Simulated scan of single mutants.
Amino acid sequence: MKQLNMIYSFEPIINENCKILILGTMPGVQSLRKQEYYGNKQNAFWRIIYSLFDKELAIDYNEKKKFLLEHHIALWDVLEACDREGSLDSDIKNPKANDFVSLFNDYPRIKSIYFNGSPAETLFKRYVKAKFEKGDLKYRRLPSTSPAYTAAFLEKFDKWKIVLEDL
């Protein structure tokens, strides 16, 4: 039997002004290598976020993080750690959820959670939502920005426009 690799997510990109939280599942191989959320150039996440505000995509990762915070958007993953070979969410084993109770206590302005794809939503419902009760949160699943989800960019972008309603 092949040995799986324990991998760890990143700290959230967040500040006290954030109103929405976008959740992925766990960074992929390229993101982990680069130590950047959505570090795979084929992932549409950053292009979608910048397009929402009709801005040109920044190259520098620190600029991307700053852009999110300027627009009151926080970014994190549902999982803190898991065993996984490769980048596919379907290969996740032994998931350990991030500490959302502390996050929501520390950042009470967050009112909406957007899931970047159905695996993030499924993992959140299974491992997080049952552990705390924050009834004033709004939850929405968006199409995955991953290249593994092969919908066209414009199809994804059109559905992601709903994020603007909560800002």
Rank of each mutant, 00 (worst) to 15 (best):
D158V: 03
L57C: 11
N116H: 05
S146N: 11
D106Q: 12
L23T: 04
C82Y: 02
K2L: 13
D54K: 13
L88A: 15
E11W: 01
N43F: 01
I49S: 06
L32E: 14
V128Q: 04
F132R: 02
F104R: 05
L164T: 09
C82A: 15
T145Q: 01
Y114G: 04
I7K: 12
I14M: 04
F115S: 02
V78F: 02
L88W: 14
R126H: 12
D54P: 01
I7Y: 06
C18S: 14
D89F: 02
F157C: 06
E36G: 06
E36S: 05
D54L: 07
L123E: 07
E36I: 02
E63I: 03
K156D: 09
L167F: 10
D166R: 09
R126A: 14
L103C: 03
G135C: 09
M26V: 00
A130N: 14
L79I: 01
K161G: 08
R141W: 01
S112F: 12
L4T: 10
A44W: 12
L75G: 05
K129F: 10
P95L: 00
K41V: 12
E165V: 09
P12E: 07
N116S: 07
K64F: 06
D89A: 13
S118N: 15
L68M: 09
T25C: 11
K64C: 09
L137R: 09
E16M: 02
I20C: 11
